[in-house]
Design a protein around this nucleic acid. Structure first.
Lengths: 339, 339
DNA sequence: AACGTTATCGGGAACGTTACCGGATTGGCG
DNA sequence: CGCCAATCCGGTAACGTTCCCGATAACGTT
């Protein structure tokens, strides 16, 4: 309606749109006086170039798409924070998509992002995604893609994750060194890369200390509301002396279930989580955690993406960047008096 | 590059672009056979209309802007969840902006959203915002705006908030009924509407029970990292027997500070927070809270906005929709044995 | 004096899409 | 047989912007 365009300026100043355009972009072939006139007038009317027209012309949107399983999750909202910081500093906007852990929605969502002409995609795969051909196709069309956290090695794209193997190894080793032997591992659906890596770290630590790997101590939990409790019950029948939980939600669900059953932590079983909640120290008992640098993961992933977008570095080096985790020992995994 | 357009289809089928366009929109003036041809071909090539071209033509973006102080905050990320659900079901996309509690950034951010041609704005004001003329101007330009949570009555727009007065009243009354008299109120910067409302609820409850309002028991905390602790220290000199904290962050900071000083909760002081953290029951002690229905606030706010956008209901009814809060009593505010 | 240079600007096309207007062909009807 | 309406389709402008190509002077160069 009253948004003013380059045409309005041209008409008012008796110039052509091309002249106005060039004056505003400070072209050398425009008279200094004319420039001044145009710029002053534009300023006075608070002219802003129409980004949509720009996008249509330049075939790019200055928008990147971020696809995550869900945003109401501490880890992801922190990651998005990091992504946004980098994006905005480069003049890009961020559109966030949620897959809600559904493969179908992931496909739809990716299509949406592409239709919207996102200049690049930052993706953390849904837990039900085992096949990434929908992403491979995009990559063949030269759309920059960077994976983070939930990555896949079937896609030749840069990836950024925490050092899941190292974190899981450290957590398991810590439990062993505090006298635990039957360490249960409660983890997320098996397709996801991080599940595999954490499981591998867990097994490697067991190996190192000559503890046989017992499959019955490992359980995969989905993302349902009340899925955790029965699984914990089930695991308890194997009489574990420690729990290593692979995510925020699982660690908290685990803690809740154990408290509900009046199982002493850490006396009877100790507990360590792979999580990013900020209140771990305020829990009862305060919870040991392996922390992932979420903000940094987001920043790095975004930087990788912009390197691809702007550097025209078309050939993605499909390296995985691993960021070290940090283990914080709290009450829930103290050496048990019994052990 | 290889994104196919209506022109490609026209060329391939020896038709004009207008015919293709109408065929795809199922116009009555196109032969059924031609339609079939076009639609089949489009399907085969996986044609997707270019939303940017559409936006330019129709002067709307099918994008709404959400402006919040920060996303890495349980309340806001839940709210955004609600907003997204409604938006996506209506075929809109959501771009999220963060103000980081800065007035300057709020102004910039709003400008950004407008320049990006957002069809409407969903805003929760920054804590340093006392002046909303930057929003009034937009409203005069007929841009639909809906405020939520941190609202302002200086703007004639629909607003959606929790029942802050009622929640604060209930929390304070609960503290009084469990024998507390010197109730400290730790709250957020005073400009924000919710601060005023919660303070009013607090005072009203005191009034009802004939407890004089003591200004020295009320403190305003900013959003700095280590701001809470000294304030708690300061408040403790007034020997309060209860704390009513007005946000997630403050309640947790309060809990941490009190635990650090070995002050028994709830024996010496009891504590209730105005918050949305999901782990309140796992804290030590488990924390009483007044919960806001964040998801619902987001949904309702979004629906209000879409009513304005689509219903062309240009004249906003500037009513405030208040959604009831829910008080959950846990250990931190149990009746003290002493009192 | 004829030509090249420089400075400064305008015209038009293009990005992908739709809407308006107009045109062609056909069939029906008087 | 001629006219009109219906059916079906094409051409073009427009959304806001940039860029390529010219155009027009004024000036300097040979």
């Amino acid at each position: 309606m009253d948004t003013i365009t380059i045409k309005d300026i041209a008409r008012a100043l008796n110039l052509s749109t091309s002249t106005v355009s060039r004056a505003l972009r400070d072209s050398y072939e425009i008279n200094a006086e004319t420039k001044r006139l145009v710029i002053e007038y534009a300023e006075r009317l608070n002219y802003r170039p129409n980004p949509i027209a720009l996008s249509l012309k330049e075939n790019r949107s200055r928008v990147i798409g971020v696809i995550v399983p869900q945003i109401a999750n501490n880890f992801f909202s922190q990651t998005i924070n990091g992504i946004e910081a980098v994006a905005y500093s480069r003049g890009y906007h961020v559109i966030i998509f949620q897959t809600h852990e559904s493969f179908e929605r992931e496909i739809l969502t990716v299509q949406q992002a592409v239709a919207r002409k996102a200049d690049g995609l930052l993706i953390s795969l849904s837990s039900s995604t085992s096949d990434v051909t929908h992403l491979c196709q995009l990559q063949e069309k030269k759309l920059p893609i960077v994976l983070f956290d939930r990555v896949s090695n079937e896609l030749d794209s840069p990836s950024v994750t925490a050092d899941n193997f190292g974190g899981a190894f450290a957590a398991t080793e810590h439990l062993i060194q505090t006298g635990r032997r039957r360490i249960a591992h409660l983890t997320i659906p098996p397709y996801i890369s991080i599940t595999q890596e954490r499981l591998a770290g867990y097994r490697a630590a067991l190996d190192k200390y000559g503890i046989p790997y017992d499959e019955s101590l490992v359980r995969y939990a989905g993302f349902g509301q009340d899925e955790v409790e029965p699984i914990v019950d089930d695991l308890l029948r194997q009489s574990p002396d420690a729990f290593f939980a692979a995510s925020d939600r699982l660690a908290l669900g685990c803690l809740e279930a154990l408290k509900k059953r009046n199982i002493a932590i850490p006396e009877t079983v100790s507990l360590i989580g792979f999580t990013n909640i900020t209140v771990a120290n305020l829990l009862s008992p305060s919870m040991s955690t392996v922390e992932q640098p979420a903000l940094e993961i987001g920043q790095l992933a975004a930087e990788q993406l912009f390197n691809m977008i702007e550097g025209k570095q078309k050939i993605p080096q499909p390296g995985i960047i691993r960021i070290p985790t940090r283990m914080v020992i709290r009450e829930s995994s103290q050496r048990s008096l019994v052990g």
